[in-house]
């Protein structure tokens, strides 16, 4: 099944005098979408609402026709998965396989079913050989992959990543980029909160810029990253390649080094 999220005039505030989200209208469907913006722009609050961890002050979120407010957090978890920023916030089992099987069993899979899903998920992140290892004996990059597999194994239709590339080196980023694209090609709806613009340019179909609790820009990365002045106002940067091409006076917006090199070679 495909995941589709419809967000209608969503407002949220913790206290009466300070509104965090000031009316968000978005439809999120079959695309990988990056939510970018300065800290404090409301990105984290927004994804917490999508997970049902917070309730909107007004407006609603509809998932495949059902209002999220009529579902419990546990019910939402079956359909919408979220990988938290720090893998240490969730890991508690003594072996990788048990850790990855925990989520699937919580959402009602049998032990056998959970095991099959867990092994598939571990394979997708390239950790199937380490299934018996204690997660605490792994490095941070590998623990991150375990935390991703733990969510994938629950087989949700929507997967949200919170800053997946933080503290990752080149190999780690490459691996996470591949996972994002693989999930997208499987027809999952992939969302991420992220500060790494090069990563967005490289791996995402759509970028939504949050600023001061509202949506400032929305569209494919070419369109969004071509608006240098607006990005600057939201305290964001263009991807490095885009910046270079703008400095060189190109009209077109290039997102990756490969795109630009190909273009130049074709001339």
């Amino acid at each position: 099944m495909m995941g589709r999220l419809e967000i209608r005039d969503l407002h949220f505030s913790y206290t009466e005098n300070e509104e965090i989200l000031k009316g968000i209208d978005l439809v999120l469907d079959q695309q990988s979408t990056a939510i970018i913006g300065q800290n404090g722009a409301g990105k984290t609050t927004f994804v917490k609402l999508l997970k049902g961890l917070l309730q909107p002050t007004s407006g609603k979120i509809v998932y495949n026709g059902t209002d999220l407010s009529s579902m419990t957090v546990a019910q939402i978890a079956k359909h919408i998965g979220m990988v938290f920023q720090n893998p240490n916030d969730q890991i508690f089992k003594n072996s990788v396989i048990d850790e990855v099987m925990f989520g699937p069993m919580q959402v009602g899979m049998s032990k056998e079913e959970a095991k099959v899903h867990a092994m598939d998920a571990l394979e997708m992140v390239g950790m199937e050989k380490k299934c018996k290892v204690n997660p605490y004996d792994l490095g941070l990059s590998e623990r991150k992959l375990i935390s991703i597999a733990a969510i994938l194994a629950m087989d949700p239709e929507v997967i949200i990543f919170d800053e997946p590339t933080i503290a990752q080196d080149y190999a780690g980023k490459k691996c996470i980029g591949e996972i994002v694209e693989h999930l997208r090609n499987q027809g999952k709806l992939v969302l991420t909160i992220i500060h790494d613009m090069d990563f967005v340019a490289e791996h995402f179909d759509r970028a939504v810029v949050f600023a001061k609790g509202g949506v400032l820009l929305d569209g494919n990365p070419e369109k969004v990253f071509s608006r240098a002045e607006i990005l600057e106002k939201a305290f964001l940067e263009q991807p490095n390649v885009t910046r270079l091409c703008h400095a060189l006076g190109y009209e077109e917006t290039f997102l990756t080094t490969d795109d630009f090199v190909e273009y130049k070679k074709g001339q």
């Binding site: 080149y170 490095n240 390649v241 270079l244 080094t257 490969d258 630009f260 090199v261 130049k264 070679k265």
Partner: peptide
């Protein structure tokens, strides 16, 4: 991974 600018320089 070298800087984007180096990758472009190398590619071209």
């Amino acid at each position: 991974l070298p800087p984007a600018f180096t990758r472009i320089g190398r590619g071209l």
